[in-house]
């Protein structure tokens, strides 16, 4: 399992602390999106509506996928 997943040509170094490929960056974006939404619902939804979180996360996702 370990040997099969070697870094290949599509991988690159961005601002993220690990070498990533397109799938990794998409995955990280989705993970962050879900996490932020859950925390937002728990702590912030009384103050700011949820779509703010969505907008913020999508912006972050674009940034991660482009530059990560």
């Amino acid at each position: 399992m370990m040997a099969g997943i070697q870094p290949n040509k599509a991988d690159r170094d961005g601002f993220l602390p690990i070498r990533t490929n397109g799938f990794d960056r998409g995955f990280i974006s989705v993970v962050i999106l879900i996490l932020v939404h859950l925390l937002w619902m728990r702590f912030l939804e009384g103050l700011l509506p949820l779509w703010v979180a969505t907008v913020l996360c999508l912006a972050l996702a674009v940034f991660i996928i482009r530059k990560g």
């Binding site: 370990m2 170094d13 961005g14 601002f15 993220l16 690990i18 070498r19 990533t20 993970v31």
Partner: peptide, 15 residues
């Protein structure tokens, strides 16, 4: 996933 990243040892970022 975090463990898997650690496992494959994909240290990147700082060259």
């Amino acid at each position: 996933w975090l463990l898997f990243v650690a496992m494959t040892g994909r240290k990147g970022g700082a060259q």
